[in-house]
Nucleic acid binder design. Structure first.
Lengths: 151, 151
DNA sequence: GCGTGCATACTCGGATATAAGCTGTCCGAGTAGAGGGGG
DNA sequence: CCCCCTCTACTCGGACAGCTTATATCCGAGTATGCACGC
């Protein structure tokens, strides 16, 4: 199991955007964090498709949050970047090979899939318990606003 | 985020091994589940390195569980295949770029990393709550033992 | 009849190709803003 | 002095390479079994 590095970038960007009063360009967000401009742009597009940020076109444009930071959970950001597909995908090997189970015995999901789904549910629940605003409180937001204003 | 397909194979194999009274060859485990023989062998080697199964060499050899199935958690199997590394790896971007935090402010882990680690902890805790024996009870173990005996 | 040695067939184990997905990059389409000209 | 037009520079957006990782495979090293032989 491996999470994309873009997840970390996206979460940090949302924290910065929560402190901004004007749209912030993607290139500026990249410079603020010292990461690739073009690649970050890709992930910001994913956030826009998920409805978490809103692209503002034209001069003085950039990205802005669509909702108050307190209403955006970390889970939403992670799913926007990683995709909504569950990490574990059951390939129904219980119905394959020599000890294949008959179809009538497979009305319920495979036991393995149930355990994995439950674990992923716990993971999601934990991520959903923290909002972007909660995260922002653990950073030096004063310095952030200074940098954003000076930009 | 994406889990390796080998995780599903490994868990199913552990369930089968919990019902076997003799070592089961890797090729037979593959045929029982209808998956690639050589690739499954790779994952079984990972299980052996993790101390979950024990390879029995020579004729009539194969793989066998090292402990009672009730003492093997699903988490152990997943970590054996996926590796012990956490899914989220903090790259400390809070210390990079224009709004880099000073080192003296980074004595504690990054807030983003803390949230991700907590979620992963919840995921692990859930997986650790189910043993291979628990999983076996949701399968038709009678059919399994017949197939293993007929082998 | 029993012990020993050997041949055999079966097992695991690591080193090796192929495919997919993440990482990183580029250039084009579109738009809000600023400035100049005219009324 | 105010309004309109144009021009510019800046923004996002999707299409295009490079590289690490997962997937799948092959062949070689090692060993317990079974049999034959000798005692």
């Amino acid at each position: 199991m491996k999470l994309s590095a873009g997840v970390e970038w996206a979460v940090h960007c949302c924290v910065v955007l929560s402190q901004a009063q004007q749209p912030v360009p993607a290139a500026r967000l990249a410079d603020l964090h010292g990461v690739s401009r073009t690649y970050l742009a890709k992930h910001l597009q994913a956030l826009a498709r998920a409805g978490i940020v809103r692209p503002v076109e034209g001069r003085d444009g950039g990205y802005a949050l669509t909702r108050p930071a307190g209403e955006i959970t970390v889970l939403e950001v992670v799913e926007a970047v990683e995709g909504p597909d569950p990490a574990f995908r059951c390939t129904e090997i219980r119905q394959q090979g020599e000890l294949a189970a008959p179809p009538e015995a497979c009305t319920r999901p495979c036991g393995v899939a149930r355990v994995m789904a439950a674990a992923e549910q716990a993971w999601r629940r934990s991520l959903a318990g923290t909002s972007v605003a909660d995260l922002a409180s653990s950073f030096d937001t004063t310095a952030m606003r200074e940098q954003l204003g000076a930009g």
